[in-house]
Design a binder for these strands. Sequence first.
DNA 1: GCATGATGCTT
DNA 2: CTGGAGCATCATGCC
Length: 437
Amino acid sequence: MNNSPLSNKNNRESVSISDELHPYNVDNIDGQIQNLLTTMSKVGFLIDVEVINNLEVEVEDLLKKLSVRIFHHIGYDINLNSSKQIAKLLYEDLELPSGKKKKTGFSTDEVTLKKIKKLHPIIPLILEYRTVYKLKSTYLESLRCRIEEDGRIHSTFLLDVASTGRIVSRDPNLQNIPIRGSWGEKIRKAFIVPCEKILIAIDYSQIDLRVLTHFSKESKLIEAFKQNQDIHLSTAMEIFNKKASDITADERRIAKTVNFGIIYGISPHGLSESLEINQKQAAYFIKTYLDKYPQVKQYLDLSRQNALKNGYTETLGGEKRYIPELKSKNHFIRSSGERMAINYPIQGSSAEIIKLAMLDIDCEFVRRKLSSSKMILQIHDELVFEVENEEKDAVIKIVKEKMENVVKLIIPLKVSIKEGVNWGEMTEILKLEMAIK
DNA sequence: GCATGATGCTT
DNA sequence: CTGGAGCATCATGCC
């Protein structure tokens, strides 16, 4: 393992798989990837400022209308950005039922307000105001101000910030640009590429669940991934004990939430909050899941036990994270430690895998002299490239091949590929041109 | 001006 | 009392 090709930056091949416990070498991944991150930052993401400007006008107008309607209803003006003033309005002046208490008063967050939104017509208006104001402040005005001379936004990418080994983007953060709903698409349409170029986004499909499968060796999951099944549907079939054609959209949604919950070290309470069901039902779903996937249960138990015994957990590459919280006498802190013991090996291994893939891709771009195509963004399980049209086929082939083969797990790694002229209108590429040289 | 809390966006 | 990891904005209170 000490002779891994990884230790030679300019001559990396595929990684060593000789050591079963640590199937790849993580020596100095972060040191090697630093230059690549600096380059991504220098390249930046081209922005269509007209799209931003037009959206700002639209949003400005909407905010004005919303605040006028709200103030008309209540008969006076308040600062709608102040949760303190919103709380006074709802829970004192309007005497609506209040939910959980925070340090400074009763909560007015989205989850709380949705529970009482039918009790007063201004609550949906407040919720919409919040969404739109968030857009205006964080994703329109702020981003516009960060466009530099070259028409691009240059984020900074950092290692050694996230305790899981993930890469962090800041100033500005380009890893949390909205994607859901109509606003997500509208904003992402402002992220563009120059003429003669195309945007390519490739993301790992279910990498966390695949890593969980690798660690747990759960036979049902191995089978599902080997057959490239819809994993949430497959889980729904297990939990609800039905065949695929009988699974409803709602049952699949529940299974998807359970799958994510497992990775995060779920509790019945947490799942009940996410699914808006009672805790008894949530507990039943978890129990059923663990009954149906016994090797996952065994793996999760073992993860906690080993973390307590050793004081740390580790990733596939052997990167350790110490978890002193496991010995806390405070139940809350200890539970939090147990969730870390579950989540860190999974999320940390995923982070390693994509960082290794980024290095492989970078090397191959250099080797193949694809100098006009640039990696511009990494969003945890996704890579975004600004690609010369003529290099498109070659880039897609390389990125897919490197991402899927960077490390051999007991099940295959899969990516999905999208292309577009902007980040808001991406189309999945299902058929790959196999006539590539 | 600075720290903290509340909120909300992503994976 | 309970979903892992982050960052940014705004309000508020204190210096």
